[in-house]
Computed example of a mutant assay.
Amino acid sequence: MHDRPTILVPIRVLEGESFPEGTAELLSNVRVLLLGYHVVPEQTAPGQMRMQFETKANTRLGELETLLESAGATVETRLVFTRNGQKTIDRMVYEHDCLAVLDPGAAGNLDDVLVPVRGSVGVDRIARVVTGLFADTDADVTLYHVTEEGESNEDARTLLEGLATRLASGGIDRRRVVLTVRHGDDAFDAITDDASSFDAVVMGESDPSLSTLVFGMPTKAVAERFLGPVFVVQRERPLEGGRTE
């Protein structure tokens, strides 16, 4: 039996943002933290902005909450007027133990899901997100790894087989899981080129000792080049001394 991971869905609630087609159905099996936020200009007090627009923002959040709940999701909402949207998103991730953040795109028939894997760090969190989203669907899941210098095909397949085993224990039929290893390519270019063949992407974090592949600007670039939904699996919350939970 798989759990229901918490997915953060940020939306600029006063700027006319809405869910692309298929988003509610995509999130039907998870817990959703629906974050409505508005970035307040420097010359305006956040409290003043809240007093003026809180009712309108909450009405819109309520409409989106109803849409998600009608599809089966468990939803919690937060409304924030902030100076820095990204810092607010990061804070909500940690405060509510969100496993992933959704960068939404149009979700049609979810037949094929791409899961790029880079190193073993975060594999358990990737597995929880993928099983939470897709265990109760018929979607095929492609575990995808681009080898680095000195890494053998056997090493790469061992990494992917380990994740495949975790997915199977979470309820995804092993016959639905495809292992793909690419050699001699730039990892970022390979992923963005191949993502177009899939309906959704779940991107896990890199080993911290390696160059960052799927966080920061590269993640945004993937989302810009890929028209479907992208789930970015978040790092564990850092503890004192640089360790993680």
Rank of each mutant, 00 (worst) to 15 (best):
E95Y: 01
L34D: 01
L35W: 00
A127I: 05
N58I: 13
T77I: 15
Q43P: 03
Q86M: 12
Y94H: 13
D111V: 06
S70I: 05
F53E: 12
R31F: 05
L102V: 01
G119M: 10
S70K: 06
D90Y: 14
D124C: 10
G36W: 00
A71Y: 08
G119N: 03
E69I: 11
R83S: 03
L99C: 14
D97S: 06
G122T: 09
G72L: 13
A71L: 13
R125Q: 03
A45V: 10
M92I: 05
D111I: 02
G62P: 07
K56W: 07
R125Y: 06
L35N: 00
V32K: 04
G47W: 03
G36D: 01
Q86E: 13
P46H: 07
V93T: 09
I126W: 04
V32H: 03
S70W: 02
G47L: 11
T82L: 02
N58F: 12
V121I: 11
L67P: 12
I126T: 08
T59A: 15
T59H: 10
D124L: 13
K56Q: 12
V32T: 07
V101G: 01
L79C: 07
L102H: 15
H38T: 00
C98G: 07
K87L: 10
N109L: 13
V101I: 10
R125M: 09
T88W: 10
P46V: 09
V80F: 00
Y37V: 00
A45D: 08
L35E: 00
L35Y: 02
Q86I: 07
T44P: 12
Q48R: 08
G108A: 14
N84H: 15
Q43D: 01
Q52R: 07
T82R: 04
A71K: 12
V75L: 14
F53Y: 12
K87F: 10
M49N: 03
L79I: 05
V113P: 00
T82N: 02
L34C: 02
G62K: 13
L79Y: 09
G105W: 13
F53W: 09
A100S: 04
L68S: 13
T66C: 05
Q52F: 07
L35M: 05
N58L: 11
G72M: 07
V117D: 08
N58W: 08
T44Y: 14
L110E: 06
D111P: 03
Q86Y: 12
T66P: 04
G119I: 04
V75N: 11
G85Q: 12
P116C: 06
P104L: 04
Q52I: 05
D124E: 11
V40A: 04
L64C: 09
Y94T: 14
G105L: 11
Q43Y: 03
M51F: 03
T88C: 09
L102K: 14
V115W: 06
Y94K: 14
G47N: 12
P46M: 09
I89S: 03
M92Y: 02
A106F: 13
R118K: 08
F81C: 12
Q48L: 09
P116Y: 06
Y94W: 11
V40G: 01
T55H: 15
G72R: 11
Q48F: 05
G119A: 10
Y37Q: 00
A106D: 10
T55E: 10
S120M: 04
T59R: 11
T88A: 15
V32I: 08
G62W: 11
D111C: 05
S120Q: 13
S120E: 04
A107I: 06
P46Y: 02
G72H: 04
L114C: 12
A127E: 02
S70E: 05
L79P: 01
V123W: 03
L61D: 02
L79S: 02
